[in-house]
Deep mutational scan, measured.
Amino acid sequence: KLLSSIEQACDICRLKKLKCSKEKPKCAKCLKNNWECRYSPKTKRSPLTRAHLTEVESRLERLE
């Protein structure tokens, strides 16, 4: 599967780190437990900047 097509777990399953069936409108866990089942939009991760990478590398060197 391509990364862009990976389905996201519902908010509660993601928060509780449960295996989500990803069914809509309610996944199996939410249906069974009568929880409100919501699927928040995916958040875009910002790409690493060179400055951040350099900072992490220098912190790693100090720890070694």
Rank of each mutant, 00 (worst) to 15 (best):
L31P: 05
K42W: 06
E61Y: 13
K16M: 01
K32V: 09
R38F: 14
Y39N: 04
K16C: 05
K26C: 14
S21H: 00
S5V: 11
L15M: 13
P47F: 03
H52D: 05
L2A: 12
L3R: 11
I6P: 12
E64Y: 12
C10A: 06
A51N: 13
N34F: 14
K17S: 04
P25Y: 02
C20M: 08
P25F: 03
T54S: 11
K19F: 02
C27S: 08
R45C: 03
R59H: 05
K29W: 01
N34R: 11
K17D: 02
H52C: 04
C37Q: 08
L31M: 14
R62N: 06
R62K: 11
C10K: 07
E64S: 12
K19S: 05
D11N: 03
K32E: 09
Y39K: 02
R14C: 02
E7M: 11
C27W: 01
Y39D: 03
C20K: 06
K19I: 04
K42N: 09
Y39H: 08
R45V: 00
S5D: 13
E7G: 10
D11Y: 08
K24F: 15
L18F: 01
T43K: 05
K16A: 03
L2P: 15
S46C: 03
L63E: 04
L15Y: 15
S46R: 00
P25R: 00
L63W: 00
R14S: 07
L60Q: 03
D11M: 01
L63A: 04
K24G: 11
E7F: 13
I12Y: 14
S46Y: 05
C37Y: 09
R62W: 04
L31C: 13
R62G: 06
E64D: 09
L48A: 01
S4F: 13
A9R: 01
L53H: 01
K24Q: 14
R59G: 05
Q8H: 12
C20P: 00
R62S: 09
S46H: 00
S40Y: 08
T43M: 13
L15V: 12
E64A: 04
T54Q: 09
E7N: 11
L48G: 07
L48F: 06
L2T: 10
L60N: 04
L60V: 15
A9M: 00
K29A: 05
W35R: 14
E57D: 09
C10T: 03
T43I: 15
K42Y: 14
I6F: 13
K42C: 07
E57C: 05
E36F: 08
V56Y: 08
Q8T: 09
C13T: 02
S5W: 04
A28M: 15
T49I: 05
L31Y: 14
C27I: 02
H52S: 06
S58H: 15
L3D: 15
K29Y: 05
N33P: 01
E55N: 11
R14H: 04
C13L: 03
L63C: 07
E57R: 10
C27A: 00
S5A: 12
C10E: 13
Y39M: 06
R50E: 05
N34C: 14
N34M: 14
K42T: 08
R50I: 04
K32W: 07
C10S: 01
H52N: 06
N33I: 02
K32I: 09
L3P: 10
K17Y: 04
A28I: 14
C30Y: 05
S58V: 13
P47I: 02
K26R: 14
C37I: 03
K29F: 06
V56P: 02
A51E: 05
P25M: 04
R14Y: 07
K42M: 10
E7H: 08
L60A: 13
P41T: 04
P41S: 05
K26Q: 15
H52F: 06
K19M: 03
S58F: 14
P25V: 04
C13W: 06
K44C: 09
K1H: 11
S5N: 10
S5L: 11
I6A: 11
A51R: 11
L15K: 10
V56T: 07
K1N: 15
R45L: 03
K32H: 09
C20D: 08
T49C: 07
S21C: 02
R59S: 05
L2D: 15
R59W: 02
R14G: 05
K22Q: 08
P47M: 06
V56I: 06
L15P: 04
K42F: 12
S40N: 04
C30M: 07
T54L: 07
E23K: 10
L2C: 13
L31T: 12
E57W: 07
T54K: 04
P47C: 05
L53G: 00
A9Q: 07
L3C: 14
L15N: 11
K42E: 05
R50G: 00
C20H: 01
L2M: 15
K1F: 13
R62I: 14
S21L: 04
S4R: 05
E55F: 13
C10G: 00
A51S: 09
V56R: 00
L31H: 14
C20Y: 04
C10V: 01
K22G: 04
L2Y: 14
K42D: 06
K1Y: 10
A9D: 00
W35K: 12
K32Y: 09
K44N: 10
S5T: 10
R38A: 14
C20Q: 04
C27T: 02
P25H: 00
K42G: 09
P47E: 07
K42P: 15
K24R: 14
E61K: 10
S4K: 07
E57K: 03
